[in-house]
C-alpha cells in the first residue's frame, strides 16, 4: 500500500519535472550583458553621420536642456536606423555622450526595450506577431514558412545578410490577423520603413519576402485583395450612412 503510494507520488514528481524541463522559456530579448565580438567592441569608433547629427540636434531641441536624458529613446532609435538595425556597444556609448549620462543608464534603456536589437539583424528584419489572435489565425505557420524558406532559425541572419526573423508581441492589428512587420534598414535612416503586412498566408508571406529580395517594396497593409484596410471582405455591411457625432455636453456652455 505504502509502496504503491510512494511510487505514485514519485511518478507525479517525475511528470512534473519532465513537464517543467520541457517547457522552454523564450525571452524576447538577447543576453543582458555584452560579449566582445569583432564587430561589437566598446573601443570601436561610432558616430552619428552628418545628416543624423542635424536630427540629433532637432531631437534634443524637444527637451529642456537640463533633461537631455529624456532623448535617450529617440536617439537610440536613430542610432539603430543608421547602423543597419542594431545597436553595437559603441553606438550606445555615443548616445550616452550626447545626452551626458553614464553609459550604463543607456544600456539599461536599450536592454529594456525589445525593439532595440543588440545583435546583428538583416537588412529586412521580419517580425511575426505571436500574440493570441494572430496565433489562432495561424502565425506559427507563417513563421515556420518564412524560416523554412530562408533556411534560418529565429533571430538568425541569412547568409546574404538580407533577412532575419524575429517574434513580436501584439502590434494592434488583430482585426487583420495574422500579421508581420518588416523593418526596412536597407537604406539607412533616410529610407527607413516599418510596415505592417496583414492578412497573411504562409504563401503570401513567402511572396513578400521574395519581393523584398528583388528590391521591390510590396504594398503594406492587408494582403487580402477583397478587403480595404480593416474593413470587412466585400465592403461594409453596417454603418453605411454618415456617422452621427457622439452625444457630448457642450463644455463651452457649461462654463
Amino acid at each position: 500500500m505504502l509502496g504503491r503510494l510512494a511510487a505514485q507520488r514519485l511518478n507525479e514528481i517525475r511528470t512534473a519535472i519532465r513537464r517543467t524541463t520541457q517547457a522552454s522559456r523564450s525571452f524576447s530579448t538577447a543576453l543582458n550583458y555584452h560579449i566582445d565580438t569583432p564587430d561589437n567592441r566598446p573601443d570601436l569608433p561610432w558616430e552619428f553621420n552628418n545628416a543624423n547629427k542635424e536630427k540629433v540636434k532637432e531631437i534634443l531641441s524637444f527637451y529642456p536642456s537640463n533633461y537631455k536624458q529624456s532623448a535617450v529613446i529617440p536617439l537610440l532609435d536613430l542610432a539603430q536606423q543608421q547602423n543597419g538595425g542594431w545597436l553595437p556597444v559603441s553606438a550606445m556609448n555615443a548616445v550616452a555622450k550626447v545626452i551626458e549620462v553614464a553609459p550604463i543608464r543607456v544600456y539599461e534603456v536599450a536592454t529594456f526595450y525589445t525593439m532595440f536589437n543588440r545583435t546583428k539583424v538583416g537588412k529586412y528584419h521580419l517580425l511575426v506577431c505571436g500574440t493570441t489572435p494572430c496565433m489562432i489565425r495561424g502565425s506559427r505557420g507563417i513563421e515556420e514558412a518564412i524560416l523554412k524558406h530562408l533556411g534560418v532559425k529565429r533571430n538568425e541572419v541569412t547568409k546574404d545578410g538580407l533577412f532575419s526573423v524575429g517574434e513580436m508581441e501584439c502590434m494592434g492589428c488583430c482585426v487583420n490577423a495574422p500579421m508581420m512587420t518588416v523593418a526596412d534598414y536597407s537604406n539607412g535612416s533616410e529610407g527607413y520603413a516599418y510596415n505592417y503586412y496583414e492578412d497573411l498566408t504562409p504563401k503570401k508571406a513567402v511572396e513578400i519576402v521574395e519581393a523584398f529580395r528583388k528590391g521591390e517594396k510590396p504594398p503594406r497593409g492587408t494582403q487580402n485583395p477583397g478587403r480595404v484596410n480593416c474593413g470587412p471582405e466585400g465592403g461594409n455591411t453596417t454603418l453605411l450612412g454618415e456617422p452621427k457625432a457622439p452625444p457630448c455636453r457642450d463644455l463651452d456652455a457649461a462654463e
Binding site: 522559456r25 525571452f27 530579448t29 543582458n32 550583458y33 555584452h34 566598446p42 556597444v89 549620462v101 553614464a102 553609459p103 550604463i104 543608464r105 544600456y107 539599461e108 536592454t111 529594456f112 526595450y113 525589445t114
Partner: peptide, 26 residues
C-alpha cells in the same frame, strides 16, 4: 553605487523575469 559611491557602473538590465543587475560591459 550612483548616489553614495559616485560610480555609475551598476544598472538594472533587461526586463521582466530576465531582469538582472549588471554592468553590461564587463
Amino acid at each position: 553605487a550612483s548616489e553614495v559611491a559616485g560610480v555609475e557602473d551598476l544598472g538594472m538590465l533587461g526586463r521582466g523575469s530576465g531582469e538582472e543587475i549588471g554592468t553590461y560591459v564587463e
